[in-house]
Design a protein around this nucleic acid. Structure first.
Lengths: 342, 342
DNA sequence: ACTTTTTGCGCAATCGATTGCATCTTTGTC
DNA sequence: GACAAAGATGCAATCGATTGCGCAAAAAGT
């Protein structure tokens, strides 16, 4: 009772005294098999508890019905929500999803991408690691014409489909909102500018200032990795300036929260004395006190879109000639931390 | 330029005028191949950009190096953190992770489990859906001796390994903590009692009350699904009682937060007039005001343990006769919402 | 010089499902 | 009744990597 070799179509065939081909065709509802035989076979399959071996089928069909996902870290609200969206669509379309996290390490990302390739995923959805500055590993896929969809962290160099938000507008809207609320000296905590995302947001920030005739002060722009510590360090530095800012547009909500905690501690009133706005609408942003204004990106929908696009590409015989870039809308969520005007 | 059939070991063999067997053995560092030949082959493989076809290998080896995960929803802090832990260990051990979400639907869970089986995952890690009250679909695995590790939502009926927290102690510690802080009428917002988890926590709650000679009042126990709405409804009901409680142990942090928001709104002071403690230490619990006391479960470590146990089972020739139940420690995180004593 | 052992490698089957082509039946038509 | 056209099913190759067994050549032993 240990040699539980699964039952195969051959076992069914033997029982019924027919050929395995017929069983295979019957199970796949091939019109060449008569109705009667089909029923007999299906009944037998059920009776014997037959479970198809997807591996064998995959090998023969050169298709795995599997999508690979690469993200820096699964355990982050944006990514897990995105993945949730992908999984929903993928499941409905009959695809499995293999997930790997790069931990923001280029080396691990490379390994993962190779592994996913060897596993012959039908398509790939990826957000680059923080370290990623070369892209050869993705060529594996493009060379074999396996579709890729990048999202979030993307680079223009990549010839592939992309799902992004309009980062320029993010920076612009956030900054202009602060201006409209009457803040005068608006700082910006930026992310690593190797990433386009952050460069664009910064451009938006500058553009909003310029448009509203607010002089740009380079002291008010700080570059970091947007962690909690970074936020704390940044706000300390900013408040230590001869002319400290009275508002900050933070590259994410995490750093905005860190700033808020510090400002509260040193007795600065938010939003009366100081305005804060973040990005991405983390779950905590709504429930902290004061609640944090932010720009919400449609994480789940981005995952849905990514999966839809990828699957469409996988299943269409003639691939899109152009590489699509889908820009998803962001939404300003005004909360207490930036609501100085009534 | 469209028939980009991958290069196989046969292609390498042809180029080198040797047999495919030799190539296979060389690539796998089989001692039967001479050093010189190995080097020649590996060099050629690299030159030709050979990428092994894992599918083919899997089929032949009857092993996929893949672990299946089933969770209700990826996009939930506990689950995504758990998965992150699994992925870490799995990757290091050379396993891929296929993730599916049941959306708390029994039907979807069944489909997923079948699909993962057909994909011949080497092992399964699962948390049951809220609806799950039958377990035949898991028999597929046990019958073929494929190891399963359940976590979080488990049921005693299942003959499989389990990773859990000591829910009784959770309830007990939370309740006793409130008692020690001087609260007198302690309510409990419980989850669906079909799940053992919640039954055990309730037992802990009752035990703590009994031990401290606090009479148990059934009006103070409310059953729900622990959503935000549930929390809000529950606290309204509780506060409308002739003798409302002065503290609540909530089945999770989400409902605790909902309660807090309501209590603040109606002007009740936390923790002076009312104590709150939740469960699971959501990211927001630390940063809301007042911060929410809670019991922290080691999500990531649970994932690590689950993966380690599963992989060990997969790779050991003789399986453990016994089914292990690993109980992970929880930690009381005392924060403002329950800190009445200085 | 002859046998035994070791070393290095190839043949062919295997994993389980799929499918082009061939074969055999049945039905239909004149 | 003869022959074509469907209709139903089987044969055998295929997907790509792995491996037990066998064979030949080289090395070691007597």
């Amino acid at each position: 009772m240990d040699h539980k070799s699964s039952i195969t179509i051959h076992d069914i065939a033997r029982e019924l005294n027919i050929s395995a081909s017929t069983v295979s065709r019957a199970l796949n509802d091939n019109p060449r098999i008569s109705k009667g035989t089909k029923e007999k076979i299906k009944a037998k399959a059920l009776e014997m508890g037959y479970q198809p071996n997807t591996i064998a089928s995959n090998l023969r069909n050169q298709k795995t019905n599997t999508i690979g996902i690469v993200v820096p870290l699964i355990n982050r609200h944006f990514f897990s929500t995105f993945i949730s969206g992908v999984e929903d669509v993928a499941f409905a379309a009959g695809y499995n999803v293999i997930i790997s996290q790069s931990n923001d390490l280029l080396e691990k990302e490379k390994q993962i991408v190779h592994s996913l390739f060897s596993n012959r995923v039908d398509g790939l959805i990826a957000s680059l690691s923080m370290q990623t500055n070369e892209f050869d590993h993705f060529q594996l896929f493009s060379k074999k014409d396996i579709p890729i969809v990048f999202f979030d962290r993307v680079v223009p160099e990549l010839e592939a489909h992309k799902i992004v938000v309009d980062d320029f507008m993010v920076g612009f809207k956030a900054t202009e909102h602060l201006i409209q609320q009457g803040y005068k000296r608006i700082a910006h905590l930026a992310g690593p500018t190797v990433l386009h995302t952050y460069r664009d947001r910064m451009s938006g920030y500058r553009a909003a200032l310029e448009k509203n005739n607010v002089p740009i002060d380079e002291d008010l722009v700080i570059y970091s990795r947007l962690t909690r510590i970074d936020g704390q360090d940044a706000i300390k530095r900013l408040m230590a300036l001869p002319q400290p800012p009275d508002a900050v547009f933070c590259g994410n909500d995490t750093s905005a929260l860190a700033m808020m905690v510090y400002l509260k501690k040193i007795g600065i009133k938010i939003p009366q004395d100081f305005g804060l706005i973040g990005f991405s609408d983390e779950p905590f942003s709504e429930v902290v006190t004061p609640s944090i204004s932010t720009l919400k990106q449609p994480s789940f929908e981005m995952g849905v879109k990514a999966a839809e696009l990828l699957i469409q590409e996988i299943e269409s015989k003639n691939r899109l000639a152009e590489h699509l870039t889908i820009t998803m809308p962001t939404e300003l969520v005004q909360r207490e931390s930036s609501s100085r005007l009534k």
